[in-house]
Each structure stands twice: as structure tokens, then as C-alpha cells.
């Protein structure tokens, strides 16, 4: 077992970073390709309740993972003495003239894409899916509400698949950092 605090810090930050990425990516795959099809095997009304419950719970995992990925990523860079308190806040090899720096910048930008997609799902499309109809709603309003819900569900699915693709790219770039970067 390591006997110094710095090594334990390195292991714990790495562990939390890896587990957060695993939860984000594995969770998205499980939601899309395991729970989604399983939901289709029960009656639609019950499937909708299940969909809401699973999505509400999964969004906690998503935001927790995204926050943990960022925090542990910054802590790992700080521990490796690649960050500084003065402009441009980074040290060699985290500069854009090095492949390591460019790859890491691309990973941060892709992480931002995941945050934007997460925000769109949480604050735009999920509320549309969860919207309830009030008594006395007319036929035209009902049809419009149904169309809006179908569109929102389609967008949630599209964004989830984009997230899976983006996370795959991040994993490839992250793995390349061990050999100096990809770009």
C-alpha cells in the first residue's frame, strides 16, 4: 500500500474521475439501450410513469458525474503542477503548442457540449415531457400538446445519442494523454 499522502491523493482523484466518467457513459448506454426497450414492454401509461421516474433519477447521476469529472479533472491537473494562478493559468505541457494541451482543451470543450446538452434535456425538454393537461382542454390543444411531447421525446433521444458519441470521443482523447495526446 502507498504510504505517502500525495500518492493516495493521486489514486483517489483518478478513481473518482474514472468512476464519474463510467457512470455518465455507462448510465447513458443503459438508459438508451436497456431501460428504454424494457419500458416498451409494459402498457403505455405505466411506461410513461416509469420513464419519468427513471429520467428524474438519472438526471441526478448525470449532473453529479459532470460536476465530479470537472472538479477531479482540475484537481488532478493541479496535483501534476500543470495549473498556475497567473495568466494563462497553465504550465507546460498544457500549452496549445503541445499535443497534450490541445487534446486536453478539446476534452474540456466536449465536456462543455455535454453540459449544454444536459441543460437542454433538464430545463427545456424534460419539463415539456412532464407537462400535464388541465381539465377542459380542447381537441386541437390536446393534439398540439401530444405533438410537443413527441418532439421533446425525440430530442431527448437525439441528445442522449449525441452525448454517447461525444463521451466516446472524450474516452479516446483521455486514453491518448498517456502517450502525449491525439491532436
Amino acid at each position: 500500500m502507498p504510504d505517502d499522502f500525495a500518492t493516495w491523493q493521486h489514486i483517489i482523484f483518478g478513481y473518482l474521475h474514472d468512476i464519474a466518467i463510467a457512470v455518465y457513459f455507462g448510465g447513458a448506454v443503459a438508459m438508451e439501450f436497456v431501460l428504454g426497450p424494457a419500458q416498451a414492454s409494459i402498457p403505455p401509461a405505466q411506461a410513461q410513469v416509469m420513464g419519468q421516474k427513471t429520467a428524474d433519477r438519472f438526471l441526478w447521476l448525470v449532473w453529479g458525474s459532470l460536476a465530479l469529472i470537472f472538479v477531479t479533472g482540475v484537481l488532478r491537473l493541479a496535483r501534476m503542477e500543470m495549473l498556475s494562478w497567473s495568466w494563462p493559468f497553465v504550465e507546460d505541457p498544457l500549452v496549445l503548442s503541445e499535443s497534450y494541451g490541445r487534446t486536453l482543451l478539446a476534452m474540456v470543450l466536449l465536456w462543455c457540449v455535454l453540459v449544454v446538452n444536459g441543460a437542454l434535456i433538464t430545463f427545456v425538454f424534460r419539463p415539456r415531457l412532464a407537462g400535464k393537461l388541465t381539465p377542459g382542454t380542447g381537441g386541437a390543444q390536446l393534439a398540439a400538446a401530444q405533438t410537443a411531447k413527441i418532439q421533446a421525446a425525440t430530442w431527448v433521444q437525439r441528445l442522449t445519442r449525441i452525448d454517447i458519441g461525444v463521451t466516446l470521443l472524450i474516452a479516446l482523447m483521455g486514453a491518448s494523454l498517456g502517450w502525449g495526446g491525439l491532436i
Partner: peptide, 15 residues
């Protein structure tokens, strides 16, 4: 590993 472990955590925590 991510598919395996992330899936297991999601099945336990979400399903």
C-alpha cells in the same frame, strides 16, 4: 469498463 460499471450502477440506482 464504463459500460459495465456505469450500467450496473444505473440499474441499481435508477431501475
Amino acid at each position: 469498463w464504463a459500460v459495465y460499471v456505469g450500467g450496473a450502477i444505473t440499474m441499481e440506482w435508477v431501475l
